[in-house]
Design a protein around this nucleic acid. Sequence first.
RNA 1: GUCCCCUUCGUCUAGAGGCCUAGGACACCGGAUUUUCAUUCCGGCAACACGGGUUCGAUUCCCGUAGGGGACGCCA
Length: 505
Amino acid sequence: MHGRRPEHHRRRPAGRWRLDRSIRLHKPCFGKQRKTMSVVTRIAPSPTGFMHIGTARTALFSWLYARGRGGKFLLRIEDTDRERYHPEAVDAIKSGMKWLGLNWDGDAVSQFERRDRHAEIARALVEKGAAYYCYCSPEELDVMRAQAVAEGRSQFYDRRWRDRPAGDAPPGVKPVIRIKAPLAGDSTVQDQVQGPVTVDSQNLDDFILLRSDGTPTYMLAVVVDDYDMGVTHVIRGNDHLNNTFRQKLIIEAMGWPVPVYAHIPLIHGPDGAKLSKRHGAQGIEDYRDMGYLPEALRNYLLRLGWGHGDDEIISMDQAVAWFDLDGIVKSPARFDFAKLESLNAHYMKEADDARLVDLVTPFLEKQTGTPLSAQSRAWLAAGMADLKQRAKTLVALADEAHFYVAPRPLPFEDKARQTVSDPAAQHILTILAARLETLEPWTEQAIEALCHDIANQQAGGKLGKVAMPLRAALTGRSASPPIFKAAEILGRREVLARLKDAIAN
RNA sequence: GUCCCCUUCGUCUAGAGGCCUAGGACACCGGAUUUUCAUUCCGGCAACACGGGUUCGAUUCCCGUAGGGGACGCCA
């Protein structure tokens, strides 16, 4: 059913940038140390406290690209900003990655721990004449920017220290190191998603490489780390596209190979604006807590910004085999919970019953406030085949499963109470209870047959007149999984007890 | 404001100049099945942003307009 699409359907128009990739792959610019071009991708999240859903998708794409090519997928924590650094945030990233099934090669790299190396490169750049010391204070720069905005000019640093002799350095001021960006010309990046993108040098300023406290900025650190880690393919959010030109300046000044870039479009909220807190969920742990299965979220994220013909349900193995950069869509995508939910419903139906019992247990325990009894667990396991057909999330599953874990007497919902308290229903339940006491064998089929029999005798053959009160009595609700099966699972003793609760009610 | 990117059903997408009467999925609406609610199955509604080119022919290529998004920090 899937993957019929012939290979030639998967490619983009041959014009323009497509040609460049083959050139890039075989050009000696990739350096002597990488004769055999093996793919290395990475995900480089900053420890903000949770793993952003967009970061998760970038990680997925990077992971798939590497795994599909026998390459490596690395994890680097961009933790150079010490004021915002929290160790728990790193754990959140790692556990998020693990939950999604995205294993990384080697140990996670801490960018902060590599700060000496970054500083070393910054100084090397100064020695090469590609960077310089700047003694402007932050306040001075604020004034500069404010003035530029007021006059409608570009907000860039005006390069006042670019050519000043070292002797001009004011005493006691710690300088930053700035790159010497070219004053003229332009620069083009062959992006694998966006195509060729050209930016005029006038739009590149002398940005800071090394802060006055000696720590690197993101722009420097990312380039040095990617080089040292041997990253060949940089797959990241489109919000970094402009940064690429700045980073290229550093790369070229050092004479390093330029990686292949693929800037994937951003994920927007349902309203089209950047995904933010007010849209409800940004971190993947939020999705886990909303009861989504990792395979469902993975499948959803994969299809958000990437397509493979008409394929919708895509396994991890298929994704590894099929994923390629040229299937990535260029435009931003809106996040659609309805579709995620439908995918989740699909994967829940496919999921192993025992696994679902494990997965739903924390939700259930949260709901009841007590640990699950062995009896409840057993009922749950037996009933899972029916339960999972009906729920779209683990949260909904926990709700569906309520009657298997709630202690007697069960609370009645309004509609169920009405059903059960009807005099005719009370009469039927009384008869039903009496006959169930001696029913043999205790099976779904026998219970159903008995109910039919009672319906014929007491309700003009209307099974609903028996089944609905039974359902209400056993579950406390007016909707439930197939009730005869549920009765079989609960067992004679429990069923009779619940019937008595309902009759007395 | 400046620069960059984007634009096919409500949403995610297929689409490589004639295979397009524009396909699939989700959502929505109907119908069938059913002890309930679901599931499942069948059917339906629904889009090439606009304007110019190029071409025998444009959803597809080019230019513009409009709209959306992103970037402009001693954040990442």
